[in-house]
Every structure is written in C-alpha cells, then in structure tokens.
Write a protein that binds this DNA or RNA. Structure first.
Lengths: 340, 340
DNA sequence: ACTATTTGCTAAAACGTTTTACCATGATTA
DNA sequence: TAATCATGGTAAAACGTTTTAGCAAATAGT
C-alpha cells in the first residue's frame, strides 16, 4: 500500500549520475558545467519517476520552506478583511509559496503560540494582519524572520501596509460634491464637538481628516453631525430614526457601511427613497453594500490589493523598511443621485 | 544580528548528556531508563537556552509535521463557510497542529498544484472543503496521505463530514408547526412541479426531503410554492413582490437566508410587518440573518462544528471510513410569531 | 613535450533530529 | 566465583537534500 517516496537518489540512479548532479540540474543552478545530455537524462528520469523534492529535507539544508505565515487577530474566522486573505493567497500562489493560517483572537497567549508555531516550522516570513488598522502589540520576537504588518503598525516591525484612508475620505466628499450637493449633507457616525478628546484609531482619524479637509477645500459644511461610538447597523438605524423626526437631509455621508445599512432601514420606514430623496455614500465596501437596494455607493477598503502587497513586500528581501498606503477604491452603485 | 538557532546538541552539551538522551527526554518518551536528574538537567538546559525543536529536521526523520492542509474551492476567499475555517482552526490549534490554507477556485489545475504543494510539505493530512456540499471531482492522489471531505463527498475519499440537511428541513417545518401555523405557508425557492426532473445537489435534496416529509407527518401543506433556480436576494425580492400583488401569506419557509433577505424588503415595501403579519423561517444562518430587523429565525448550517469535526476525524488514525452528519442548529430570532 | 587550464562530473559533509544497537557498571542469582 | 540481569546512558546511522571541495580526462598554452 504505502508507496515509498521517490527520492533524489532514485532519480540520479535512473539517470546514471550522482545525486549532486541531479540536485544541481533539478534546482536549475546557473553556473554549473553539466552537459546538455546530463540535463536531459535527469529531467527525463525525474519525470518518469514522478519525483517531488522533499521540502523538509530541503528546508533543513537551505532554511527556506516557501511557506509564509499569516497570523491574524480575527481575519480568518470572521468575514472582516476576507479580501486580505484573498489577496495574500493569490499573491503567494503566484510566487510559488504557501500560506499557513494562524488566528490569535487578539489574545497575547495565542499570539506567542502562533509565532512560535510559525517559526518552529521555519516559515520564510510572517504577515501580521488585523481587522481594524491600529498600533498593535506584539510579543517580542527573538528570531530574525521577515515580518510585515498588514492593516496595522508596530514599531518592532518597520514594514507596514495600510489603506490610504485620507485619500478615501477625500474621495467620499468628492463624490457628493461632484453630484452638486452643496447643503443638507449629514455626517453619520462622528461629531467633532461631541467626540472632542476621545480617542479614535489613527486610520479613522485619517479618514476624518480626509473628509474634513476635502469639505473645506470644496467650500462645503455639514448641516449636522450625528455621533456614534460604535458603528453598527443598530446605531445607524436609531440615529437616523431619531434625526428624521425633525429633519430632512439631502445626503448622508456615513462613516461605514454598517451605519449606512441601519440608515437605509430608517429612511425606508420614513418613506424616503434612495437616491431620489436622499443620497448615501459610505466607507468600507462591506459585503452587505452590494446586497442593499439600491446598491450602496461606498469607498472600499482595498483589502485584496493590500493582501497582495503584503506578500510582495514580504518576499522582496531588498525592502527593509517601508510604509505602503494602498489607495481606497470608490465603488459606484446606485445610492448617490444628483442634487437639484 | 542573525542569532544562531539553538539546537538539541547545545541543550545536550549544557546538560552534560548526549543528544540521544536530550531527545528522548524532551520528546517525553515513555519507556526510557534515564534518571530523574538527567530529566531535570535537560529540561533546565532547554529552558535556559530557549530551545525550540527544528521541525524540518524532525519531519525529515519522523515524517510528521503537525501541519494540516485545508484545501478549499472558495471557502477562504469568500465569506461562505467562514465557520468551517473557524472550527478547523480552533480544533487544530487545540490538537497542537497548524493549518495550511490553499484555494483552488474550483479549478482542476489549481487543485493539482494545491495537492502537490501540500504533499511536498509533508502535511499530516488534507481537508478538502467545499462551499456547497456535493459530489466532487478530485485529481487522483498518489500519496497515501490521510484525507477528509468537508461539506462534500468523493469516492476516492471515504471520510466525509456533511450537514444533516434532512434533519434541518424537519426542524424548519417544526418551528412553524409548533407556532401553530396550519395554513397560508408559502415555500420560497422551490416548486416541486416546476422543477420536476431538474437536478439539485444531494444536500439540497435532503433539505427538501426533510421539509416535505415533516410537512406530511404534521398534516400540513404549502399554499404555494415559488420556484427559483438561484437563491439570491434579488430573486427573493422579485418573487415576493409579484406574489404579494394577489396574495397574503401567513408564513414563509425560505430555502435560504438570501432569499429571505430579498423577501424582507418586498414585505416591507408592501407594508407587511414581520412577524406580526408574516412569519419567516429560513436556512443557513448567513451573517446577514442577524443584521435583519427583526432578526431572521433560520436553521443554521453547523459550519463551525463541521470544521472541528473534520480535523478531529482527520487526526484520529483509527478512523478509516465514515460519513458524519452534523446536526443543523435552529437559530431562534424574531421573525417567527404565533399563528392566530 | 611538458605544464596549466578547462570540462564534466562525483564524494562526502552538513543541516538537526530520532532511533537502534550497544556498552559499561554494579547488583543479583546459581 | 562465574554467569546473568538491570541500570543509565552513548555512538552512530538514518532521513533527503544542497553544497563544497576535488578528481580525472581532455584541451590549450608555451
């Protein structure tokens, strides 16, 4: 039953050469002086035997496994940042690498275990990925394995990939401005005065800065700003429900899609049509955004591109320090109409 | 800079013993005759040096990597079946294993590449996971690595984990029956006559069989059955929109949550309240189910449990053939009221 | 015609474990 | 007293590669 693995020695024997020769030929070493015939024989032998190199043995010798670790807090086990995995997976496959998934649940004990597990297995590099970009803790790492932070930053690790939230903020405002909205714009999810002094993560701050600076440079202002600490559908629904009792906004700029999702329901219950009565623009490009009717126009987090970028940077040994900002992608759907 | 890895030989040297002794002690071999002092010395040495075994070397010798491959068609890169990963990840961690993710996009070329990549890396087992359970193709595998099919079946692989769709179908009907619905129940997504002879996957057939047999044994019947090949929100919306022009159902049994999602919107636009006017029950426990207002009562696919079960079975070498049916889990939310 | 150089290849060490076989030494038994 | 056995350990082989150093034959240089 148990097929004996075919080894390099088998190939060499069949080809009538030494294992050294076989090794050099199969790994495609450049400056070797083996004859064309030798090459042919070895390749043929390898093909007929169906030879596959034993990566454990190779790893032992070369310290390279063509395996990367993807250590995330909540990425693999929730739907957030699924695109990160998609991108990372695709890019590693293209690079002939394989991804090892480890989840830490944001828990330090799990983090150390995950890191140990990865390093024990001699991974060529580690991607640390986080649901919400932020400055992040990490257990100190003794090994000098390559690392990149995906959607997060950490001073121990000088390579980071982040979404360009500032640019995203600008884009969102531009969308409304270009649709000729000049007033009646409500910001849903943040109020500058109310939240004075409260800490928002760096990435959210960038998003807000982008929004506010673009508003100013377009000569616009919000008619109202509705504050909410949590950006869940529930909050969007309640805030809008209450707000609609006395006001009729023309456009909603929602801090994320989940708030927008809640707002949709409140608007619908108030008999308001999107986009005829109210336009809505938002952030993240959550999966729900496409399901809503009409489709939600939103400035998408470029998760897939970020995932790809992470492995690209990780594999490029020349890069030793860099902070990459990946552009956010406006997803134009049906929720923004034109102002009168 | 580059810290030299601390090796077993270092530990042995510090402990004043041979590597053989150190190895035996650290791997916790049972029937060795090394003294308690030897044990103590080795453990201490290992601790002070921070020794971590080189798994490549160990794998080379023992052919065990404590690594499993999770090869899926679209699981890792979409939000479907995220629970499968969650369960598999948790279970492998508990078992001291690590998961290697590979995605095939349902494409045979990717499948062979993924399988090769996994086997090259000497994984201890492979989980093949699929978004929709079905009989599934696989490139023939020469290696005699352990395999399990997760949410799918294949004759080459006699171990499979599947959701108990039949039982799920029964549960859904029971939910309505127990709420005293006796008539006005509409089935959304399937019509026995219209779809006569059309092929649905085995798992969907089981779901339908469960539904229909429980209906019969409860003495119930559907007042209407609305056929739709694709079960997307769009379809649910359109079907219900049209149906509501002439009819007023009391309860909706939706074939999945996405249909239900569409139906919600149609009901809302028709001014019907859930659950006061219409009760809704559905299948899958998609993430949207919890977001809807009111929360959607649905018979959940037990993805997490299935994922756990997959690694449990994979790691239990005694099991050589088995088909596990994992019970579906009714998620009671607010969408089912009581019949008058 | 002898010494260098190139050509084409191989032997053997090394990577870090696990495991088998064996070796002292002292205690027990016959 | 000699043979046996238990005790506590070690030496060395093996796993399958990669890589360094080197060897013999052929070619080139003087």
């Amino acid at each position: 039953m148990s097929k004996k693995r075919v080894t390099l020695a088998d190939v060499a024997r069949l080809a009538g050469l030494s294992t050294s020769a076989a090794s050099m030929i199969l790994t495609g070493r450049p400056d070797t002086r083996l004859s064309p015939e030798a090459h042919a024989k070895v390749h043929e032998a390898a093909a007929t035997l169906g030879y596959r190199p034993n990566m454990a043995a190779r790893a032992l010798r070369t310290d390279k496994t063509r395996t990367l670790a993807f250590i995330s807090d909540h990425i693999a086990t929730t739907r957030y940042g699924n695109g990160l995995i998609r991108g990372a997976l695709a890019a590693s496959e293209e690079a002939g690498h394989v991804l090892m998934m480890l989840e830490t649940y944001g828990d330090p004990a799990h983090e150390t275990r995950a890191i140990d597990a990865a390093i024990d297995r001699q991974v060529d590099g580690i991607i640390f990925a986080f649901v919400r970009s932020r400055e992040v803790f990490l257990p100190s790492i003794t090994s000098n394995v390559r690392m990149v932070m995906l959607n997060g930053t950490n001073r121990q690790c000088p390579i980071a990939i982040l979404p360009d939230e500032y640019q995203g903020g600008c884009e969102a405002v531009s969308l409304l401005a270009d649709a000729n909205f000049t007033d009646g714009i409500v910001l849903l999810g943040h109020n500058a005065e109310v939240e004075e002094g409260l800490f928002r993560s760096g990435t959210i701050l960038s998003r807000l800065n982008g929004i506010r600076s673009e508003m100013v440079s377009r000569g616009l202002g919000f008619v109202d700003e509705l504050s909410s600490w949590n950006w869940e559908p529930e909050n969007g629904y309640k805030l809008m429900k209450k707000y609609l009792k006395n006001s009729r906004p023309k456009a909603l700029l929602c801090m994320n899609d989940r708030l927008a999702f809640g707002a949709y329901q409140a608007l619908s219950e108030a008999g308001l049509k999107i986009p005829e009565d109210v336009s809505v623009v938002s952030f993240d490009n959550d999966e729900i955004a496409a399901y809503l009717r009409p489709g939600l126009t939103t400035i998408g987090l470029p998760h897939e591109a970020m995932g790809r970028e992470a492995v690209r940077v990780l594999l490029d040994e020349k890069i030793v320090e860099s902070e990459t900002l990946v552009a956010m992608e406006p997803m134009i759907r049906g929720s923004v109409g034109g102002a009168d």
